[in-house]
Amino acid sequence: MYKGGRIIAGLLLFACLALMPFLINIGKAAAKPSPQVNTPFIQQLTTQTCVEPAAFMKTEHMQLLNQWRDAALRDGKTVYVNSQGQSFPISLENSCLKCHSNPQQFCNTCHTYAAVKPYCWDCHNQGGTSQ
């Protein structure tokens, strides 16, 4: 090889970069987050369901929250009728956080895991009491 030393060194550098995700995780076992849904309020409920089915909430909750924000703040609508025809007050702090009074163990576990920074808390209080 001509200039073999430099080419091999460059290739080793490339291999290290390409293998970085593997190298960083050597000896680590990644634990999936387990959001806690056992708050006292939820435990008292007879039917423990969210405003929409769990599968929908997992992928679409951010969209729903956005719609709720627009409905409450821009259109003045304060009641949400879900896919089963049940009504809920449109409020992050008085609906969502009433059941999920543990945003640290509920919201944040997955958001931290997936490196998502929702800007809900720019305005809202994570403690869950309405201002």
């Binding site: 995700p21 995780n25 680590k28 076992a29 990644a30 999936k32 987050p33 997992k58 997955c110 997936a114």
Partner: peptide
Amino acid sequence: IVEVKALTMSLVT
């Protein structure tokens, strides 16, 4: 996305 990351993390570990 949590399921997706669970898969990718299981691949790289």
